Simulated assay, not measured.
Amino acid sequence: MRKKIVAGNWKMHKNAEQTEDLLNELIDKMPLETEVQVIVAPTFINLATAVDHLEFIAIDVAAQNMHQAESGAFTGEISADMLQNVGVNIVILGHSERRAIFNETDALIASKVNTALEHDMTVIFCFGEELKDRQSKNHFNVVENQLRDGLFSIQASDWSNVVLAYEPVWAIGTGETASPEQAQEMHEFIRETVRKAYGSDIAEDVSILYGGSVKPENAKEIFSKPDVDGGLIGGAALKADDFMAIVNAI
């Protein structure tokens, strides 16, 4: 049975003190028993703090990005080994902001994915269409191409370390949200696309998260859809009450 997952992407928010405060709030509010895998992704400089803080708590820590090279003259970048050295074994790759603002291509993202998997890291692979793609009814093609070009070079055995995160770009930080029906339609298409490429076992086992203005008010309905296995949460992940309400909505 595939995992239910709620991951919080903190983006460029929370300094060291604020990070500790939010982590403490999450620890206090974390359910004693849950089948949901809970993940938080603070900024690079606060990853080690988060790992230490959550050592005995059922909350995992992810990085928001990493470089594809093992080491080298790449000023400002972070390698897989550096992440693992501070106890981080999960990384978010292909986020729409990395694609749009930092011009990351599918080929570059594929290289990062391969490096992470070579290090036996878990990859949360992000993808999704822009508003113009949906308006032109090209959204299925865009998503299929992003999967094929950014991810489908991996081996079948690598899928145990992959989580998919569908994020319609038009619904990130805009207050707009895909309807539960739209989310289900796309998630079903994604699972079928994986099935065609890698077979039914992998397609049924992979967790597919929805990301795009998920809030406590709409989480339960979105998560109730059969092919939605949780969420990659942005703004609501910065408030402990909201984030835990989303966790509890599964």
Rank of each mutant, 00 (worst) to 15 (best):
L147K: 07
L26W: 02
K220I: 04
E129L: 05
V206M: 03
E221L: 12
Q155V: 10
S179G: 07
L131R: 10
D28R: 15
R191D: 08
A48P: 04
P180I: 13
K225Q: 14
P226K: 01
T174Q: 03
I57A: 02
E192M: 09
E176Y: 12
K29M: 05
I233E: 06
E118Q: 14
Q18H: 06
G230P: 10
K112V: 05
N114M: 08
D81Y: 10
S200L: 12
E35Y: 07
N46A: 01
Y198T: 02
H13A: 12
M30H: 14
K220F: 04
S79K: 05
Q18S: 10
T49D: 09
A58E: 13
N138L: 10
A110D: 02
Q84D: 04
G8V: 05
G8R: 08
I124R: 06
D133W: 06
V143Q: 10
P42L: 08
T34N: 05
Q84K: 15
N85I: 00
Q84L: 00
Q84C: 00
L238T: 09
I27T: 02
F243Y: 14
A197Y: 09
N46Q: 10
V194D: 01
L22N: 07
S213G: 01
N138Y: 04
I124Y: 07
L93R: 00
L32E: 14
M82A: 12
I59M: 07
V214N: 06
E33S: 11
I222Q: 11
S179F: 06
S207A: 14
S160L: 07
D158A: 11
V36T: 13
E33R: 15
G230I: 07
H13R: 09
V86M: 13
V163A: 09
D242I: 08
A58V: 03
E185S: 00
F140H: 15
E204R: 09
P31E: 05
V38S: 05
V61M: 00
D133S: 12
L32W: 14
I78S: 04
R191M: 04
T43C: 13
S179T: 15
T177A: 14
V206A: 01
P180W: 02
L209A: 03
G8P: 09
Q135A: 01
I90R: 15
M12A: 13
L54G: 04
